[in-house]
Amino acid sequence: METLKSYVEGNTLVVERSFNAPRALVFEAFSTPAHLEAWWGPAGWKTEVHTFEFEPGGTWHYCMTCVDKEQGDYYGMESWGKSTFLEIDPHRKIVYTDAFSDADGHVNPELPVMTITNEFVDIPNGTLFISRSEFTDAESLQQVVDMGAVEGFASQLERLDAIVSR
């Protein structure tokens, strides 16, 4: 079983996970549209990459479609994402913004944008993947809070306990 470690630094969620695979392969999984389509979307969602300009300033425009009838109201729903690559260090690091958009690639200004920094580090027998998801400001964070406000206090604390006691 691979280990997962996560912690919070300010408005940034850091997730670390090791993979028993070479660094080049893990990096390719993030930098090749066909590979991304194979694993990116949530369970039961199909990902189609429409634009993929893998260079600083380049655009990554994709659509996730729910193809799982079990998911009820979500079935058939489309969710478009638009990312802009900010920094690419081949086989080491990818920095990009993550925003909600429409099919034409217009970013939804009502919804928050996050900055994601993914790093790939050699470790014995594989690769350590470090992902930092940063909310641009407290206001954006509040929007997501308002949008995704879910009750579930007990599991919240369990989750938190798991986070802080790792």
């Binding site: 997962l4 996560s6 997730v15 949530p42 809070v145 989750r159």
Partner: peptide
Amino acid sequence: LDVWRSRLEAETARL
């Protein structure tokens, strides 16, 4: 905390 919980869950499932 809800935000971080849902974000972490999504991230974990994706990985």
